[in-house]
């Protein structure tokens, strides 16, 4: 059997190799490519016209922020569901969580579904104003 370190070891290697490969290719491109910087080249691309005044990093729709909030709520819920889904049903001598596990998670998910209905009725999910 593999120890946990041996099982997870390839991930560390993959991270190093992936970053290494990408760095190698970018370095190679820097080496082989021409280098003729100019003022015009280093301005942001706006379809050929002079860039409009002001930073692009201005205020933008609060909708994006709300989506991020919703994502966190539902993604955390998914994280709770993963281990529960593995343990719920009996397998290989393990009895499973049974009806107690089913009902307790059912209450949790029902609360979230109620939350989804609430934000839906509040109009949070309507992107077009």
């Amino acid at each position: 059997m593999l120890t946990p370190l041996q099982t997870y070891f390839p991930i560390g290697v993959a991270l190093l190799v992936a970053v290494g490969l990408a760095a190698l290719m970018v370095a190679l491109a820097n080496l082989l490519g021409p280098r003729r910087p100019s003022v015009v080249k280093s301005t942001p691309f706006e379809c050929g016209s002079e860039p409009a005044a002001g930073s692009p990093r201005e205020r933008f729709g609060v909708k994006f922020y709300v989506v991020a909030l919703l994502f966190i709520v539902f993604d955390i819920e998914a994280i709770f569901l993963y281990p529960w889904a593995v343990l719920l049903l009996p397998s290989q001598g393990y009895p499973g969580l049974g009806w107690a596990g089913f009902v307790s998670m059912g209450i949790f998910v029902a609360t979230l579904v109620a939350g989804l209905v609430y934000v839906w009725k509040k109009g949070v999910l309507d992107w077009a104003d």
Partner: peptide
């Protein structure tokens, strides 16, 4: 620091994190 890029990035983030939910479920 480009308007196109920022719009694209924000749209992408909103889209990807939204669809993460149904995919995960």
């Amino acid at each position: 620091n480009s308007k196109w890029a920022l719009f694209g990035g924000m749209r992408s983030a909103a889209q990807v994190i939204s669809y993460e939910i149904p995919a995960g479920l």
